[in-house]
């Protein structure tokens, strides 16, 4: 049983680390600000999620696991707020996203 948990936790930590690196590669490779937000979003959700799941498996049912769950919940609550604030501020500052398809017809929510 212990070896099973060890293997699961190894796999989870390695997958989490790979997703962290993938998100940051996206941050490097993608061409403009609005697409880079998606790369950083991969790190915030999947990378953090798998790493924290692996750590929680290793510490078992204890106070440490409760703290890890609190960290994960806080990341899930704060990361979309920060991303949305960043995107909104960039749009209002006049940065135009590079688009291949624009379905809004130039109309942004909140503008008349």
């Amino acid at each position: 049983m212990a070896i099973f948990i060890d293997i699961l936790s190894w796999a989870s930590i390695i997958i989490g680390g790979v997703f962290c690196i993938i998100g940051m590669i996206g941050l490097m490779r993608l061409p403009d600000l609005f697409t880079r937000l998606h790369g950083s979003s991969v790190t915030d959700t999947l990378g953090a999620g798998f790493l924290i799941f692996g750590m929680a498996l290793q510490s078992g049912l204890s106070l440490t696991t409760a703290k890890l769950i609190i960290i994960f919940g806080l990341i899930l609550l704060t990361s979309p707020v920060a991303t949305h604030a960043l995107a909104q501020a960039a749009l209002h500052a006049g940065i135009k996203p590079k688009l291949t398809v624009d379905k809004t017809g130039g109309h942004i929510a909140g503008e008349d």
Binding site: S41, V42, T45, P80, T83, H84, A87, A109, G110
Partner: peptide, 13 residues
């Protein structure tokens, strides 16, 4: 929408 990778809500009104 923002939490799901691949989509970001830019403006809400």
């Amino acid at each position: 929408i923002t939490l799901t990778p691949g989509t970001v809500s830019v403006e809400v009104e």
